[in-house]
Amino acid sequence: MKALALVTTLVTGAILLYGTMDFPAWGDPQAPASAHLSPHYIEQAIAETQVPNIVTAILGDYRGYDTMFETVVIYCAGLAVISILRRSRS
């Protein structure tokens, strides 16, 4: 059974590594990620949000939905730990 798990892991890892070969090169300016939205953010972030730090502008404004649920995930994790561990003596 252990050997089966090892083989499954190795095959999955090999497939994933094979998949990364199709990725664009590191820092490629023609890659879809840097050609699609990044120029808009870099050029328009200050004009649209008046925030000099583009990372904050993207996190807080353009991708605010993502940040909101990050906060909710942390909040839920904390609530889960409190509700599992906390017990009162009295």
Binding site: E48, T49, T56, G60
Partner: peptide, 13 residues
């Protein structure tokens, strides 16, 4: 409106 986008980020942070 643009100042509010900046200030809204601050509130959220």
């Amino acid at each position: 409106a643009i100042e509010w986008r900046s200030f809204g980020i601050f509130l959220v942070e």
